[in-house]
Amino acid sequence: MTWNSGYLKRIGVRLALNVFTLVIIITVSFAIMKAAPGKPFETERDPSPQVLEELHRKYDFTYGQYLKGILLHGDFRYSYSHRNSTVLEIIGEALPVSMELGCYALLLAIFAGLTWGLLSAFYRGRWFESFIMALAMIGIAVPNFVLGSLLQLLFSLRLRVTPVAGWTGFDSKLLPVVTLSLTYIAYITRIARGSFLENLNKDYIRTARAKGLPEIRILWKHLLRNSILPVINYLAPATASILTGTLVVEKIFNIPGMGRYFIESVFQRDFPLALGVIIVYSIFLLFLNLLADILQTFVDPRIRMQ
């Protein structure tokens, strides 16, 4: 039990460090935003000095006020560009959408990546393997804004089977999920294939075959369990990047997620909204990193002992 309490303590220290990192991220983001050229309330139509003064009085805040508001009251303030909504309300609506998109894409990436990896390992040297690997290469090489537009062109404008944009029914979610997941499918396919190939030639598989075990049992019981570790290692950073990397796909498919607000808030100099999105993204990444470390210690006891 001694190592266990020591380990919990270490997690506690990591959590404290994460809070510290978060404060640094807020400070740096705040400084960059204040230093960036362009003012939030500047529009093409010149507002009178009185109007400008009132807008500043209503919406401006200092670094101290902001930090205090967030840490003590959880007050992320009102957005500059959506003046009837608080930043928390906007994020509260947008985050679940981005999460949904990211989770579907991740699940699809894991399922398709493992299946394709397994199939290409099984059919090594055959045309099927070349086909899968070519697809994987395309997935890695083609940026998702190109892929998204191509899918829209084919499935929405030519075949008319899916809507061009939106996030309403099942059919509208199909193309964005596929677009977002393809790069990850490609990576997982390649990693899984390598790992499967390595293990297929191992003695324990040969033994299992010699014992006359059915192929499906060898696959499920022996091969998959032993080959999946590299994929799991890849999944932690992939999850972080897939869940926070939805901005391009959100723009192409007009999805009301966090990524769109992030881009928009930076261009509009909507400081409270941009800071809010940065904080949420940061908490997410810090938490996922911590989670990945904890998971690794479960998989590999040597880390726990150190």
Binding site: Q152, S156, L157, R160, P163, V164, A165, G166, I252, F253, N254
Partner: peptide, 11 residues
Amino acid sequence: MTAYNMFMNRE
């Protein structure tokens, strides 16, 4: 472009 495509797809 998205808006134009939505129009062409009668959305």
